[in-house]
Design a protein around this nucleic acid. Structure first.
Lengths: 232, 232
DNA sequence: ATCTCGTAGATTGTTAACAATTGACTTTCG
DNA sequence: CGAAAGTCAATTGTTAACAATCTACGAGAT
């Protein structure tokens, strides 16, 4: 039963997060381009910079490899991934397969909380200033799809989604830096997805998300400049 | 250019595999039931048993968690996963989404080598003795689908497949131990998949793999006995 | 001058010891 | 006798040193 001490999470941090605290930090640096593609990451260097030992850094790099942000080669260390057009094609075909499943399930399981979360994101999209930062646009875009995946109630789908999510962030970052047409395209399309999922129309929802993702990939390809092969 | 020394891989082992050599070992013990569901795995115990330190064992457990074979809880160590009917539903809905994409792409990319590999597996299925071991049946079944995934030429799809492959093995193990109807059902269905993929009929291939997986899930559910909650 | 081979430096893979946290047992009080 | 708090052993998280491996640079031969 609820008591007066329920809000005392100040002192007892739920779990003094293991050194996977560094994963979000490095991830952000990669997805926002602070760490350029192809850059070589040295364990010792990162460890001293983050004020910890090589052990946790090592585990963090394994996690980042799982997300496809770095490649690990034996005795050669970690390197920030260099994404090509072929990679974009892979990510978006897999993304289509996963999100089709997501909305299919979300149609029958969407709770009021999920719907409210979608509306909050949509509202923040609507209020976005014309000269929005790419980072914010990427965050909002992904947050919307996060809610859809969460609404599917499918732990393994969620994990597969996490596996390409960061790479999608990298592509979107490039795309929104090249063209600021979030209001004209992304917002109305996301709104349409919300409406048809909320209506529970499974077939329509799948078709809508499919169309959204195909279009997203096309715009991506149009905005994309192939990165030069990194020398380090 | 090709030379006479190309086959000298005897001495120069491509890469003295890191201690992820233990991952297959532990994986096999879990999928075949040697390590029962719910069993608690202690790092130090495994390390001494395998003749190495805790470091590599720790990394191996992270990898096994990625495959969904164990659950890792902070300060509580690793535990062999306990698969329920809900888990089977998750695995098979995700599997459908992934394999639909796999055959869709495989239809246009199937090389003679892939086709030959499929035929080898199918032939071994055909020659399977009536009292085959569940382990062998599971291996053949998965190997067939491995080829399909490989033929798709999609690295990220491959990774997502690896993520549920071992769990599928656990389900199949139970199923083939309960009923030995590989010849009546699995072999002809796999043969049908091979034929329609080889014919390049995308729509038909998707429908066939879909039907195969829905049926597989139904048979799984019929054969499955819910495991009792493990006390350790 | 170019190619090959050997050496050196740097970097990762592995090990073993130390610190922090958890869960269970014992003890104590109502 | 039951419940709550304190203590302790077991286990994981982290650190730092050691060993194995790879890349790069430079000397020597062709």
């Amino acid at each position: 039963m609820p008591g007066p001490l329920d809000q005392l999470t100040i002192e007892t941090q739920p779990s003094p997060a293991l050194s996977a605290t560094v994963v979000p930090a490095i991830r952000k640096m990669i997805t926002t381009g602070v760490l350029a593609q192809g850059v070589h990451l040295r364990e010792a260097e990162l460890a001293t910079a983050l004020g910890m030992s090589r052990g946790p850094v090592r585990e963090a790099l394994v996690e980042l490899e799982r997300e496809g942000l770095v490649v690990l080669r034996r005795h050669r260390g970690a390197q920030v991934i260099t994404l090509t057009g072929a990679d974009a094609e892979e990510v978006y075909t897999l993304r289509r397969a996963l999100e089709r499943l997501a909305v299919e399930r979300a149609c029958g399981r969407l709770t009021p909380d999920h719907l409210a979360a979608l509306d909050v994101v949509l509202d923040r999209m609507r209020q976005l200033a014309p000269d929005y930062s790419p980072e914010l646009a990427v965050d909002l875009d992904l947050e919307f799809h996060d809610v859809l995946v969460d609404a599917a109630g499918h732990a393994r789908l969620e994990r597969s989604w996490q596996q390409i999510r960061s790479q999608i962030a990298m592509f979107l970052h490039d795309r929104h830096q090249a063209r600021r047409d979030f209001h004209e395209i992304a917002h109305p399309e996301h709104l349409a997805i919300r409406d048809i999922v909320a209506a529970g129309d499974v077939g329509g929802a799948i078709a809508t998300i499919d169309n959204h993702l195909v279009g997203a990939f096309d715009r991506l390809r149009a905005a994309r400049t192939e990165p030069l092969p990194a020398d380090d």
